[in-house]
Structure formats: C-alpha cells, structure tokens
Design a binder for these strands. Structure first.
Length: 354
DNA sequence: AAGTCGGGGCG
DNA sequence: CGCCCAGACTT
C-alpha cells in the first residue's frame, strides 16, 4: 500500500473532532490556521471559539478595531499574527467583497499567510493539490525516510517541500494534508512516539535504524538575551492608572503597558530607577516608588529572558503627565486594554478597585 | 542565512 | 532547563 493510503487509513480511524474540520468555509479555516501557527491546538482552541463568537464573519472582524482584536488575542502570543489577521480581514471585506482568494498563489499574497497557511487553505477549502509542510510533516518525513538535513536550513526547507509535494494524494489533498499532520501530532510525536502501534513501522528508516530520537535534525538557535524591566504602576486618588501603548517594531507591538524603565541590571531602590529613567518622569514621583515584588518575576520568552519588577506609586493626581512628551493615558478601565501576560498576571494579583 | 516574534506544556 | 508547537516576516 502506498504511503498516503496508509496515512489516510490511519487518519480515518484516529482523527480528532475539530471544529474547523467540519467546514469548507475559508473564513474559519483561515482564522484557525493563523491561530495555530507555532501554537498547540489545546492552546488555540479556546481563542478560536472566542473569535468565531465575537466575529462570526470576516466583516465583523474587519469592522472591529485593532485594539479590540489584540485584546481578544491577549495571551496567545506572536501578536503580529493578530495585527496581520485584522489587516487581511479588512482587505478581504473591503477590497474583495468578503470573498477569499481561492488559489495557493493568490492566498500567499495575504498578510500573515505564508507557504504553509496558503497550502492549508487552498487544499482544505478548494481541493488544490498543494502539500502542507509544518512541524508535524517535517518530523514524519524525516523519520520515515531517514532524512537528516536540518529542517530549518535552506536546503532542508526545499528538500522537504519537494518530497511532501511528491507524496501528496492529489485526488484528496485535503484529507491527506490533515492526515499527515494529525499523524505527526498523535502518533509520530516529538517525544516518545508510539512506534509499537505504528502502521508505518516496517518501512520507517528511523525506527529500523534506531534514529527516532535524533530525527528530525534542527540547527540550534541563538541564545536568549536577558533584560530587566521595571514597570511603574502610578495610581492616583481616583484609581486612575497610567498606561502607554507600545509603538516601535519590537516585542508586544501595539499592546499596552505601564510606564517602563528598562535597566542594565536588577534595580532595588528608587534611586536606581531615577538613574535609568528615560521617560523624564519627575524625580519627586519616582522617589515614592514602592517595590511590589522583591524577587523579580522571571518571564521566559522563546528569544528573551525578562526579569520584571513592579513599582507602585500612589499620588494625588496624574496631572504631571502633561509635561511629558510620551503619550501616557490615564485610565480606570485597564481591563479593556490588551497587555502582555506578565502584566495581566500583575493586574489580576494586585486587584485594582473598580 | 540569520534574527525576531509569545506563551504554555512536557520530560 | 531545553525543546516543541497546523510559521511568517524582516534584515
């Protein structure tokens, strides 16, 4: 039996019941594919339901504000996905009459839709014979064929894409693509795959040569850099709190935060804050800072290690911000703004009175 | 070709 | 801790 037939037979027995598999409507399928980029299904699923409920159609999503979209995305990470999602929704709604492109090539022109996502939508919605290559596919193919080309090298990307396309069942690309990904997720998992019950065992090079644990190969990434973040929770007598929008192009773009003082080392006293402050916040304000957490919170990201401290400053009124060039906002409705998880956790613990 | 971009879960 | 997850985009 052919490779693709074995995978599909396995899939028909073992497929999970997932909401985006019940439809050919490109809107929910596109939404799910964006959400699941570098994200486990268990983590993305609740967000998928939230989004479908809040934005039942691409027009609802297009008519929302970016702030609203980011707020709903809060906690899912890789926020450029949310910004691109919203941008593409507006494009589809206003320029394309709400109709998604229906070919791989056209789909790839959409913001946030790359090689994988275009293949997924084109095959699931329109039966176009284009093979998906995601983390699951890399793993299944590298093991079954014993390919040790690093999957994140230029040659590896090309090699696996060509192989995947060759193996594709072109009469039912939608089922084959689902099958190989589901197989990678459930049977041929990264750690301790279930080789004993595997229908591909006898022809699997990695299994026969005991290479399961060393495949797929991957070039190691650069080491993470450490940073020290000091957030100033400046609260006035009416429970207004100062926040700002992160604009630049870096991490957490367009999310909100408390005024931030980044320091080259751990800070323990207000005078440290004063020496590192670039917001030009008046000294007499910073002097009142009370350290909320003695031990910095370790916030681990894929490419960064953050040591985060929160400093609470109670003052009578926040009028001093008029003298600052930065655009801080006074708010007593902090819950309505999208914030990074490390700030969300602080807000939940600190408990502003509403 | 290498960096950047989140957060959670698992061994 | 290190690795991985239905990757895309920038430099």
């Amino acid at each position: 039996m052919k490779f693709h037939n074995k995978l599909i037979d396995w899939y028909l027995v073992n497929a999970r019941d997932l909401p985006w598999r019940k439809t050919q409507d490109p809107y929910p399928i596109w939404l799910s594919e964006i959400m699941l980029q570098q994200t486990r299904i268990s983590q993305g699923l609740p967000y998928f339901f939230k989004f479908i409920e809040e934005f039942p159609t691409v027009f609802h999503l297009a008519n929302a504000s970016e702030d609203q979209v980011l707020k709903l995305w809060q906690g899912l990470g890789y926020y450029s996905r949310a910004r691109n999602l919203h941008s593409t929704a507006k494009h589809v709604a206003y320029n394309l009459n709400g109709i998604f492109p229906n070919t791989y090539k056209e789909l790839k022109t959409l913001k946030g839709v790359g090689d994988y996502t275009a293949s997924a939508i084109a095959s699931f919605c329109y039966r176009e014979p284009v093979a998906v290559v995601d983390g699951n596919v890399y793993r299944v193919l590298s093991r079954f064929f014993g390919i040790d080309t690093p999957i994140n090298s230029t040659e590896g990307v090309k090699e696996f894409k060509n192989l995947a396309q060759k193996l594709l069942d072109k009469k039912q690309p939608h089922i084959y693509n689902q099958a190989i990904m589901e197989f990678g997720a459930l049977q041929c998992s990264p750690k301790s795959p279930d080789c004993n019950s595997c229908p591909l065992q006898t022809n699997c090079v990695a299994f026969q040569q005991d290479l399961i644990s060393s495949l797929p190969r991957k070039l190691k990434k650069t080491k993470v850099q450490e940073k020290f973040y000091n957030y100033l929770v400046i609260v006035d007598s009416r429970e207004n709190v100062l926040i700002e929008k992160r604009t630049g192009n870096g991490i957490w773009k367009n999310l909100y935060q408390f005024p931030l003082i980044e320091s080259p080392k751990d800070c323990n006293l207000p005078k440290d804050l004063i020496s590192f402050d670039e917001n030009k916040i008046p000294q007499e304000i910073l002097e009142k800072a009370l350290l909320y957490n003695e031990e910095p919170i370790k916030h681990i990201l894929s490419h960064r290690k953050l040591w985060v401290k929160f400093w609470v400053i109670n003052i009578e009124n926040l009028n001093f911000i008029e003298n600052l060039s930065k655009s801080f906002i006074m708010t007593n409705q902090i819950d309505t703004f999208a914030v990074p998880v490390v700030i969300e956790k602080f807000i939940d613990t600190y408990g502003f009175s509403k």
